[in-house]
């Protein structure tokens, strides 16, 4: 039982990080029909911004994290929107998908060529001490990750549902034309979505890198986890992406322990196919009407 609790808690920690990435992914899809195949790399790269700030610019942990957030918002948010997504939108979905696939390769290669191909140590927010929780050993790091990630999602949810800007963003996501008629600055709302995605993936990066180390190939598994979480939970709902992320994190850990370590990576994929077969709109998703 204690082993089970241990697995669930560490699974929740990874799941909370997946949830952050999946929420960003779903937000981008809703507001600008962008399927970002570089989402995993968006999580891989901010850790290296922080490492550069610490190693080459001599920053402390917190200033370096702040710099990491700022660069992520700028490059992965604003520059991604302006330089990659915007020129592509008039061509339709496919060229944009291909472009993000190429962007993923570009980011991976850039980190490998200009920083290092080796896995890098990354500082954690809190010292990793072990706590005793109902007989199970739980690390403070897992607890910190869960608290920070859930806190961030809760904050985002509050922002989207309770502030004027957040509601305007939701309106933009639901129907761009009507939002424009209502006097919402649609372009600005879309930019906000991209900035939020940049910040969410940066946060995920800073939380996951101390656990799995920072490496240029990390994006592959993380990106896949984000897609699966978003689809399993429901592509068009923030709540769905959160639920999908948590389920995936726990399932991943339990599968590694109880099913097979070799096929651990296969379990989420089987869940993905099962969801697409029986509930394609996701667990919490709405069925989108077909536009003819």
């Amino acid at each position: 039982m204690s082993a089970f609790i241990q697995l669930v808690v560490s699974g929740l920690a990874t799941g909370a990080i997946y949830a952050l990435v999946a929420v960003g992914f779903a937000l981008l899809w809703q507001t600008s029909q962008t399927i970002n195949f570089a989402q995993g790399e968006f999580v891989m790269v901010p850790a290296f911004f922080v490492l550069v700030a610490i190693k080459y610019w001599g920053f402390g942990y917190w200033p370096a994290i702040a710099v990491g957030f700022a660069i992520s918002a700028l490059l992965l948010g604003a520059a991604f929107k302006g330089l990659v997504v915007e020129p592509m939108l008039r061509h339709g979905v496919l060229p944009l998908v291909i472009s993000t696939v190429a962007l993923a390769i570009l980011m991976k290669e850039a980190v490998k060529d200009f920083y290092s191909s080796q896995a890098q140590q990354f500082p954690a927010i809190v010292e990793g001490t072990d706590l005793d929780f109902l007989g199970a050993v739980v690390s403070t790091q897992s607890i910190a990750v869960i608290v920070v990630a859930i806190g961030a999602v809760a904050l985002l949810n509050w922002f989207l549902s309770s502030t004027l800007t957040g509601r305007a963003m939701q309106a933009t996501a639901q129907n761009r034309n009507v939002a424009r008629i209502l006097g919402i600055d649609v372009e600005r709302m879309i930019l906000y979505t991209f900035l939020i995605n940049g910040l969410l993936t940066a946060l995920a990066s800073f939380l996951i890198s101390p656990i799995y180390l920072a490496k240029f190939t990390n994006g592959e598994t993380l990106g896949l986890a984000a897609f699966v979480a978003a689809i399993v939970g429901g592509f068009n709902q923030v709540r769905g992406a959160v639920l999908g992320g948590l389920i995936l994190g726990i399932l991943d850990n339990l599968a590694a322990a109880y099913v097979s370590a070799q096929y651990r990576a296969a379990v989420p994929l089987v869940v993905l196919v099962a969801v697409i077969l029986w509930r394609p709109q996701g667990i919490l998703g709405r069925v989108e009407e077909r536009s003819v």
Partner: peptide
């Protein structure tokens, strides 16, 4: 790296 960048420009 160059190939990926060229693909993005082409797209």
């Amino acid at each position: 790296l160059l190939y990926a960048a060229a693909v993005m420009v082409l797209m």
